[in-house]
Each structure stands twice: as C-alpha cells, then as structure tokens.
Design a protein around this nucleic acid. Structure first.
Length: 422
RNA sequence: GGAGAAUUGGCAGAGUGGUCGAAUGCGGCAGUCUUGAAAACUGUUGUACCGCAAGGUACCGGGGGUUCGAAUCCCUCAUUCUCCGCCA
C-alpha cells in the first residue's frame, strides 16, 4: 500500500511511475485525493464536535460537585444532542475513510526507475545468461517420464489421494528433495540468514500485511472454519513476524530464511506448462527475507540476486537473470529479478526464483518501522527471494543430468543425498 | 471441550464512573557532581492522525454497547494462566 502522504505530495510522480505498469492511475488518484480532502474536512468537523462534547462533559462533573443540579441537567441535555451530532459526523468520516482505504488497496507499488516498460513476460529484460546449455541426447526424456522410469515421483497417486498438482515423492525422489532443502538452508545459514520454521497457516491480518489480501484470496487455500489461510510462500509468515514492530537502526540487517511447503490454488492456470513439476498446488521452497534501511535496500537486492545465482552455479544449472518489465511486475513489488533455469529436455526456461524489493509497500501495511537517527519513526524496506523453489530445480536437474545409465547428482548434493546416481 | 482468573505505557505495577494519557518503581535520554566512571541528585521520557501554529482528536488486549462523561459498568471475540476432560 502506498503512503497517502506520498501520493498527496508527489501525485504526478506516482502517476508517471505507474504508467510503467501500463496503468493510467490519473482518475483513481484524483478521486483518492478528493476523498482525502473531504475526509480531512469531515475529520475536522467531527473533532470540533468531540472537543465541545468533551469539555461540556467535564463541566457537568464540576457542576454536580458544586451542587448545581439544574444547570447540570440542562447541560446534560445539550451533551446528549452533541453526542448524536458527533455520531453522525463520525459515521460520515468513516465512510469516506473506507472508500480511501479501498482505493489504496487497489493501487500497486510504483516501479523502480530501472524497470523497463512492457506488457508481457516476453518484454522482460534479460540481464545475463550463465552456465552451459547441455546438448540434448537422442533419447532424452522430460522429467515426468524420468520420474516414472526411475520411480521418483508419482503424479497419478497424488491425484488419487488428493488431486492434480499434489505429487508423491518416492524413494530417491524424496531423498533428493530433502537433500535440496537441507543444502539450501545450510547455504543460507552460511550467508548469515537465521533459520526459521514458521506456521504453515496464517490469519487474515498476515495475508493483508504482505499483500495477498484483499483481492487475491482466490489464490490461497482457505480454512473457513477457523478463517485461516495455507501459506502460498514462506514470505507471509516470515515477513509478518515483524508486523507492528518498531526497530532500532542498529537492528539492521535482519536476515531470515525458512523452508516451507507452499500451497497455491493456481486458479486459471492451464495448458502444457502445468505438466509434471512445472506447476503444482503444493511445492517446497526455501525463502530468504530481509528488512533493511531504505538507503541500503537496492544494494541488498543485488546482493540477494548474486547469492541465489551462486546457488544455481553450485548446482551446475544453466540460468538466466531477468529484470521484470512493468507489465509482469507483481502487485507489491518495486523491482523484481527472476532467475530461470534451462530445462533441456523440455527446451524451456523455468522460473525458479523471484527476488524483489518492496520498498515501503509492505511495511506500510505491516507497520514495520524503525527509529531513525533523528528519533523519527519511518517505514523499513522489505525484500525477499526464493532460494530456491524446488520442483523446477528438480525438473532441470533430472533433465539436464540424464545419461544412458542414469541421472547424475551434482557433487554439492552428494553429501546430502548419500548417493551420486539415480 | 468444560469451569475459574487475568490482559494497563519499554518492563513491573497502581488505578471500580468525572480533575486519568493514566500514580509509583525500574529502564532509557539529557544535565549537575567527577580526571573518567559508578553512586547520588535534577529534568525529561508512548503512538497515530488533523492543523502553518496554538491546539485538537483517538488509543489502558480487539470489536460493540450503556452514560452528558468509561481504564473503571455491560456484551462479544482473542490471548494467557489454573483446574477438569480428551489426545499426538
């Protein structure tokens, strides 16, 4: 959520930034500022009435104390009338405030100046490509066939027990999965991140804090009985740890990592890219989250990108780095880099990480602030990134490392798997 | 799941209808004293919003209500503790 004061003071800049997302926010923001003005007027009116009622109430107490019954009763009648007036004024004010809130929830974050214009994912800027693309062998199979051949993952069993998109990992498939999780967590720990095991379900307030709610509830699994949501990413519980927290400047940097399963309804997804591990309703992911001083956050974003790139290099996967264009940028993000690995047998780039700076967009909702050197409270910057999402990593590992006599496990993983070949 | 008790400022803790944004202690900050520090003493010390300002409004777990007036009374929800039940 953008800060209303910022919109008030830099209206044109905000509108101009939002055009990068192909959004014409002019009208919405005009409406917003008009409502804002009305709100302030009605607030002023309401508070004036409240002030009068408050001082009257005080004087009534005094009158009673002095035994002036008649005067007191007269004042009481007046107070009752004032109270009625105050109630009406407050209702008017709150109605306007609700409208303002609603519009604010609808406005996405302003893209960073480096975000390229563009509408589709094909307009994303390829920043770099690294690693060697393997030459596809004669009988190379896509990962879902490999998974079947070596009995690593059973998709049909998942359909029977739960539904499409909930696979079973079996034997070496399961162990490889667990190895990846441990490898990623150990790497994050070595990079100074504190490991967290958070709850896998969150309440509504947390969903609002990180921007999944309102509006995107269709993407999350919801337990209506207790009004709880299955997390779509560890970002939600990890970031909400610091909801309503006032930090000291010396608390920075705050670096968290956590492994969680992620649950996504993926309503509206279809077609060939849901095949196999490419898109699941439940998948495993290790996430890194950071809270930073605003002056430092873009440097940190670069550092996070470099860190995740390092993971892919260690796994020996060819990857490319994309700077997302305005049209592809997530609602809450100001700047996002996506990392995609090349999955040879599918001949596809698969997104395995998304690393974003949200600036104050989430912090504003979270009320995540710090006391600056002047003793003033200001909003912190939040950042996060996948490090890494497992299924597509697994897909690329299986596809790229297949040989005539099995699948080769990258050397860095062998201590974790306990086997070097499938 | 049942019964009872509790929830106040960074922490501890007082406050059962009017002068309470809230005593007191600790902690924090500034100062006096000191070569320096400690101790002692003095002062100061929540957040948000509106306003150029003066100032105003709101907040004593959340929400609602009674009243001219609520930290204080009522309802409701949440959380914590104790006892009982159930259970990995």
């Amino acid at each position: 959520m953008l800060e209303i004061t910022r919109i008030r003071e830099n209206k044109n800049e905000v509108i101009e930034r939002l055009t990068v997302r192909n959004i014409d926010a002019q009208e919405k923001i005009d409406t917003l500022l008009k409502l804002d003005e009305e709100w302030r007027l009605s607030k002023h009116k309401m508070e004036a009435i409240a002030a009068e009622a408050n001082s009257l109430a005080k004087s009534i107490g005094q009158l009673f104390k002095e035994g002036k019954q008649a005067e007191a009763n007269e004042a009481k009648a007046k107070g009752a009338a004032l109270k009625e007036e105050e109630k009406m004024a407050a209702e008017g004010m709150n109605a306007i405030a609700d409208d303002i809130q609603k519009i604010l929830y609808e406005i996405p974050n302003t893209p960073h100046v480096s975000v390229p214009t563009g509408k589709l994912d094909t307009d994303n800027e390829v920043v770099s490509e690294s690693g060697t693309i393997p030459t596809v062998g004669q009988n190379w199979m896509p990962h879902w066939e490999l998974a079947k051949k070596y009995n690593l993952i059973d998709f049909e069993l998942g359909v029977k027990v739960t539904g499409a998109g909930f696979p079973f990992y079996i034997g070496k498939g399961a162990r490889l999965q667990r190895a990846l999780i441990n490898f990623f967590l150990d790497q994050a720990r070595d990079a100074g991140y504190t490991e967290i095991i958070p709850p896998f379900v969150v309440n509504q307030a947390s969903g609002i804090g990180t921007g999944q709610l309102p509006d995107k509830e269709g993407q999350m699994y919801h337990d209506a009985q207790d009004d709880l949501f299955l997390i779509p990413t560890a970002e939600v519980p990890l970031t909400n740890m610091y909801r309503d927290v006032l930090l000291k400047e010396t608390d920075f940097p705050i670096k968290l990592t956590g492994y969680t399963p992620c649950f996504r309804r993926e309503a509206g997804s279809y077609g060939s890219d849901v095949r196999g591990l490419n898109r699941l309703h439940q998948f495993d992911k290790v996430e890194i989250v950071r809270f930073e001083h605003p002056s430092n956050s873009y440097k940190v974003l670069d550092e996070m990108v470099a860190y995740v790139q390092g993971l892919l290099t260690k796994l020996g996967l060819p990857y490319r780095t994309l700077r997302l264009c305005g049209g592809d940028l997530g609602f809450t993000s100001a700047l996002t880099f996506d990392l995609e690995v090349y999955s040879a047998a599918q001949d596809k780039w698969l997104e395995v990480s998304s690393i974003s700076n949200f600036e104050t967009f989430q912090a504003n909702r979270l009320k995540l602030r710090f006391k600056d050197e002047n003793g003033k409270n200001q909003l912190a910057h939040t950042l996060n990134g996948s490090a890494l999402a497992l299924p597509r990593i697994l897909a690329a590992l299986l596809e790229n490392n297949q040989t005539e006599d099995g699948i080769t496990i990258p050397a860095v993983l062998v201590p974790y798997t306990g086997f070097d070949k499938i």
